[in-house]
């Protein structure tokens, strides 16, 4: 494919110039938006390095006058963030795995087969996302009480799966719809069963979609607050967003620790994103096989 590109652009020099101009525009757009993102994040970093007295100084200190890493250390001492991170990792990893696996199955079923209740199921999946989630809190609590699941990882895993599975299913269905059905047919003629077609023909072509749904499920679970707060009780069972939320007090916000904790919480997400990022880079493009 790169060969084709080189040949193409090598032949047409005016295209080359045009490309340079578009590249320049592209970089300007990227820089503009990156600046808009970096600006508040710099303030987060700056705040995390300040001591209490400098927080609200006038004029605001963009670069702290008395920078200190105190909050980055103290946040682990004052609060069991190690346990919070452990819980979040367990809950969110398992929930993401279940969500992505099950939704890939369901999406394949919805994309490739016609069956009774097909449309109803799609609408039903959607309905669960259209209902205000705050009103799900009490019914969920009652269900988990009945099954003795309050204050367990299982309750959060089930909750997060039920929150993310509808979007993942719809998204993957859209993705599978984009993959030509001729591939299934060809494999079928070769004698492959439905499950094998799904696993060895369709899934390998769907990595970008799977990566996107994985990232979505992971981030959604990682940042969920109110259900995690209500469904857990012990300090040892709380998750990272609950720990972060607890730094916002009734009368006082522990700004430096709040920011430090948020920055720590970015690390696992960034690692996961970098890992899955390769599926968004060309080279894996399924196009060649598809036509």
């Amino acid at each position: 494919m790169t060969m084709i590109n080189e040949k193409k652009y090598g032949l047409m020099s005016d295209v080359k110039v045009a490309r340079k101009i578009t590249n320049l525009t592209s970089y300007s757009v990227l820089l503009f938006f990156s600046a808009l993102i970096i600006f508040p994040i710099l303030w987060i970093v700056s705040t995390s390095l300040k001591n209490e007295e400098d927080l609200f100084s006038l004029p605001p200190q963009i670069i702290p006058e008395n920078p200190t890493l105190h909050a980055f250390k103290q946040v682990w001492i004052d609060h069991p963030f190690l346990a919070y991170f452990r819980n979040s990792l367990i809950v969110v990893s398992i929930a993401t795995f279940i969500s992505v696996t099950f939704s890939a199955f369901a999406a394949y079923g919805l994309s490739r087969f016609k069956f009774r209740g097909h449309g109803t199921f799609m609408a039903f999946l959607l309905a669960s996302q259209l209902f205000p989630s705050i009103m799900l809190l009490i019914p969920f609590y009652k269900i988990y009480m009945t099954f003795g699941l309050i204050n367990t990882h299982a309750a959060l895993i089930i909750t997060y799966v039920s929150f993310t599975i509808p979007f993942c299913t719809w998204m993957m269905r859209g993705y599978f719809d984009g993959i030509s059905k001729d591939l299934d047919l060809a494999a079928q003629i070769d004698g492959a069963g439905r499950f094998r077609i799904f696993r060895s023909v369709i899934l390998p072509l769907s990595w970008p979609g799977l990566a996107a749904t994985t990232i979505y499920s992971f981030i959604s679970g990682w940042n969920e607050y109110i259900f995690a707060l209500v469904l857990t009780q012990d300090e040892e069972m709380k998750t990272v967003p609950v720990g972060i939320g607890q730094l916002v007090g009734e009368y006082r916000i522990d700004w430096a620790q709040l920011m430090a904790a948020s920055l720590y919480a970015l690390i696992p997400l960034t690692v996961i994103f970098i890992f899955f990022n390769r599926y968004f880079i060309s080279g894996l493009s399924a196009g060649a096989v598809k036509e």
Binding site: I138, Y141, K142, Y144, I226, L229, E235, E250
Partner: peptide
């Protein structure tokens, strides 16, 4: 069981209705 003051009512209500 620590709960942020802003969320006390939400949590306590859920616990009360859940019988916990």
């Amino acid at each position: 069981i620590g709960v942020p003051a802003n969320d006390l009512v939400t949590k306590l209500t859920a616990m009360a209705i859940g019988g916990n």
